[in-house]
């Protein structure tokens, strides 16, 4: 049984949610739900998207939604999935996890691994805003190299976060699941296509969507999409799919932008342009971006993906 088409509300994340103006993550959720339609069960981990959408008695969700804790969304989703099976309701809809990067790559890691390994028919989507934004911009395992956050601040002896971003899609892919992909809120067509693919896979699928946070990263609220695109155009966020273990569809960038174009627009990297030694750090970031382009291109069976805006 399917909910009747005409009964489906267009915006499944209702207006009146309390996300900051220009929120990349809220836009990501809008786009995810537009792509999935109303027949989904959302398990949401603690984080920005949970807090801005669910202050009792006001819920922004127009799909069945559950929030339990920070690190257990994948397990809660597993529970929903098996319950639907057990109750003979598995045709009712797809189970989707929506979680931030902290809830995914750090504290939620164990539950995700369990969910993937057990093969639940769940689509896990991580909106990646690269730090603990709900609590005010503390560093997560997904924070990029040299980003200044409140717990990885720059200072006389620090250029900010001293570790590179954790490669979560590779870790997920190592579980041997059928579909892993990265996308970005800056590329709605790509995002929509990948969400639809991910939910159509039978078994676990994983999607990590780059979702800039103007408040935490420090840029004008109007530039969320622009910054998201720059991340891709500079090679600091790679867009690809891993289908049945094989890297495919690495998004081609016709004109690679220097990383400065991305970094200079954000307060979290502003120190690199002021501090002695900052230039060398920027060079390291550029090397990382170049390395990204080269390795993904080399590993990809067919680099046929095109930028679809």
């Amino acid at each position: 049984m399917q909910a009747k088409e005409e009964e489906r509300p267009v915006d499944l994340l209702a207006s009146g949610h309390r996300a900051c103006a220009g929120c990349g993550a809220a836009l990501t959720i809008q786009e995810i739900l537009r792509a999935t339609g109303a027949n989904v069960f959302v398990a949401n981990s603690t984080g920005c998207m949970e807090i801005i959408s669910s202050q009792y008695p006001q819920s922004a969700w127009k799909v069945p939604w559950i929030h339990s804790l920070f690190e257990n969304a994948a397990a809660v989703a597993s529970g929903i999935e098996v319950a639907l099976k057990a109750l003979g309701r598995d045709e009712e809809g797809k189970v989707v996890v929506i979680a931030g990067d902290g809830g995914t790559v750090d504290i939620g890691m164990q539950a995700i691994s369990g969910m993937l390994e057990r093969g639940h028919d769940v689509c896990y989507i991580c909106y990646d805003n690269e730090a603990y934004m709900n609590t005010g911009n503390q560093r997560s395992g997904s924070t990029p190299f040299d980003a200044s956050t409140t717990t990885s601040p720059f200072g006389k002896k620090s250029f900010g976060n001293d570790r590179p971003k954790k490669n979560m899609p590779a870790i997920v892919a190592a579980h041997g699941i059928a579909y892993v992909a990265t996308s970005s809120v800056g590329y709605p067509r790509d995002l929509t296509k990948k969400v639809q693919k991910a939910v159509s896979v039978s078994g676990p699928a994983y999607l990590q969507i780059h979702a800039p946070c103007n408040v935490g990263w420090g840029f004008d609220s109007a530039k969320t999409i622009e910054i998201a695109r720059l991340a891709v155009e500079t090679g600091l966020w790679m867009m690809y799919e891993i289908v049945d273990g094989e890297l495919v569809n690495v998004m081609k960038v016709s004109r690679q932008q220097p990383v400065e174009e991305y970094l200079k627009q954000q307060r979290r990297f502003a120190h690199l342009f002021k501090m002695p030694g900052g230039e060398a750090q920027i060079k390291l970031i550029q090397d990382y971006a170049n390395h990204n382009f080269e390795t993904y291109k080399a590993a990809s069976r067919e680099a046929t993906g095109e930028i679809q805006t």
Binding site: L69, A74, V76, S78, G114
Partner: peptide, 18 residues
């Protein structure tokens, strides 16, 4: 993979009506 998840699965399943 853990008791934390055991109870979390029960939460998801129970909320679904199981």
């Amino acid at each position: 993979e853990s008791e934390h998840s055991a109870m979390s699965v029960c939460i998801g399943a129970s909320a679904t009506g199981a």
